[in-house]
């Protein structure tokens, strides 16, 4: 199944206020081969569109634009995620409107 996604979410995230905890990822994918069926769930459901694939079809994930909703943990916490926690205090997304 092809999944439609032409929207540029990164541009939208660029408007948000983040305090990115550089070098201290609060979400980490498992190191071993990723089950792409599981990964596809996150490609569809992550509101920040952080679960991408590169030109070779490999998973490409960056925690920097995370909105801390928990969707990926609920869907794939037991399958392809190594770690999911909230960012350290003061770090991460800061909603001005919410």
């Amino acid at each position: 199944m092809t999944i439609v996604n032409t929207v540029n979410v990164d541009q939208k995230l660029g408007i948000d206020k983040f305090h990115v905890d550089e070098g201290n990822a609060h979400i980490v994918l498992k190191k071993d081969k990723i089950d792409m069926q599981e990964y596809q769930k996150l490609m569809i459901a992550c509101p920040a569109g952080l679960y991408k694939i590169d030109e070779n079809g490999n998973p490409q994930f960056d925690y920097a634009g995370c909105l801390e909703c928990g969707t990926c943990r609920v869907l794939c916490g037991k399958t392809i995620l190594e770690k999911w926690e909230f960012p350290q205090g003061t770090m991460g997304i800061e909603f001005r409107f919410g």
Partner: peptide
């Protein structure tokens, strides 16, 4: 808004739905 168990069967991403 979309319930996760159903959302994952969709043919487009959640951000695309909003767009």
């Amino acid at each position: 808004v979309s319930t996760l168990s159903e959302l994952i069967k969709a043919n487009k991403t959640l951000p695309q739905m909003l767009e």
